[in-house]
Each structure stands twice: as C-alpha cells, then as structure tokens.
Design a protein around this nucleic acid. Sequence first.
DNA 1: AAACTCGGAATGTAGAAGAT
DNA 2: ATCTTCTACATTCCGAGTTT
Length: 303
Amino acid sequence: MPYLTQAEDIRCAIASCTQASILWLDTEVADYKTDTPQLSLIQVLADGNDLTAESVGILDVLYQPELADEFIAKVMYNPAIEKVFHNASYDRKFLGKHKAKNVTCTLELAKTIPYYRLPVPNYQLKTLTEYFGICPQVDKTEQTGDWRKRPLSPRQLDYAAKDVVYVAHLHRHLLDLAQPDPATEDIEALTLRYRQIEHRWKQLDTEIQQIKERLKAAMQAQNVKKVHGFRLSSQNRTSKKVAFHQLAEVTKKLGIELDISVQLTKSLQQKLGEVMEELPVEEENKTTWRLSITEPEEEDLPF
DNA sequence: AAACTCGGAATGTAGAAGAT
DNA sequence: ATCTTCTACATTCCGAGTTT
C-alpha cells in the first residue's frame, strides 16, 4: 500500500483523487481526546474495482496541514466527487465541515435500512463488517492508539488501510439493500406479501402493544423506575394560552410586532363569513396520500 | 362509502453530551 | 475515534367526527 509522507507524492495523490467520481475515505486523528485534535492521516481508496488494502493511499498530513487544506479545497469542496465515510459527521469536522459537498455516510445509510433486512445490534463499522462477512474478525485496538507518534507501526498502517477497505465493501452491500425505485416496484407482489405476513404481524403487534401498556401501568403502580433495558420516565408539559381578543388588544396598545398567523379552521372561516374577503388570507395547498387497507375478501385468504 | 378535517399522540431529528 | 444516548423541538400519523 502506498504510504505517502513526501509533500510532492501527496500532492500527486490529491491530483489523481480529483479525477475520481467516487472516493472511499477514512481519517485518523492525533490527540483526539484533547481540545486540540489534529488530523494525522487521510486514507483514500479510489479504484472501485480494486477494493484491497494494497491500493489504499495513506496521506500523512500530521506535520503538513497545508496539504490537508489542499485536499479539502480540491476534493472535499468538489460536488462532482462523491465521498464515502463511515460516521461522516466525525471526519467532516476535520475535512471541510459544512462546506464539504457530496458526502455519503455509510452509518446513516445503514440506519435507513429496516431491521428485518439488516438485523444488527448496532451500526459500528466492526459490527457491519463482520455481519456482511467482509472480514470475519475486526480488530479495533489501534483505533484508540497514538496517531501522533512517528514512525507509525506496521500494525497502525495496516489498520488504517483496512478501515477504508471495509467502508468501500460495506457501501456496496448497503446499496444492494437500498429501497427499490417506486416506479418499477411490483405492486401485486407487495400486496401479496402484505397479506401473507399480515396475520403473524397482527398477532405479534397486538401482543407487543399490550405488553408495553401493562408494563407501563405496572411500573407506575409498583413505582419501579427501571428494570434492565426498560425505563419509565415522565415529563410535565405546561402550555399557556390567552384569549385572542386580549392578545390582540394588548399587542396593539403596546405596539408589539408579532409576526404570527392564525390557522383559519373551517369553523373560524364560517364565523368570519364575508369578512374573509377583506383579509389578506394566505392559502397553502398540499396533497397528502394515505394508504388504507381493508380486510381481505373471505375467498382469497392466503392461509 | 369515501373523502375531508382536526388535534393530540407518536415518532423522527439535529446536535450536544456521554460512553467505551 | 466512533458510535450511542439524550433532549428539545419539529413533523407525521391516526382515530374520530363531519361532510360530500
């Protein structure tokens, strides 16, 4: 794997990055626990056909932050290049913040996939990598290592390179599980599948529902605040209201500018009657869709 | 029957704080 | 270094009443 420390080599690598349409990335940070964390490495994988640790570029920017800035300006700010990270919000802090464009996060992507398709206890890179069989056993001990010391140990470089490779493979797997295009969905198949699992679902759903209610009531009655994994909490809500005419009167008297509009419900509109015409009423139209499902016909019960 | 409305409850979300 | 959890706030959902 190319481990680059010389400025000209790194510049060259950045230049070739700008030619890519998609990059898989990871970073390592020195002094991450202090209030002055510093970018140590930028690991880049540019070739989608060669997802191996040997093709990962490791850019050592710890003592040459101007090269990191160059990377940020030329790659991170460029909306034409898709940048894929795991937990991108963290790396973003060091790589361009909100000005970074076209950033994809495999953590966020994984979270959008429903549990039944991706049944994992958490979305750590280690967990997902092992779940998809990308690597049978991921060693994370280097993660909290010292990324300021130089030279870096072979173990550290190996870890740094592998992490990006995992991200790239994971990205592939997640895209395979992504939502199908509504335009080409098989509606017939979906309705059939719905009827198939409807019965089982209702049984489980109603039971879960009832268990939750019983637990809530029982914990309240027996004053149990928590039992392993279940927590009962309460919150008070206080809301305040004033009669409309009083609010209008006071604000007018004191000349208070309130930029508020009032929802004109059907009944209000009736009360206002013709006065409606004289008001600068703001209209907003929106269409909402809802799916209603009726009991299946007796004949075609699927069970 | 079906389509609207509405309000409160349920659920989602962003960002900070906390935990290995 | 990477997530998970927490909290305040926003958005969506859903049942029920009303109208078409």
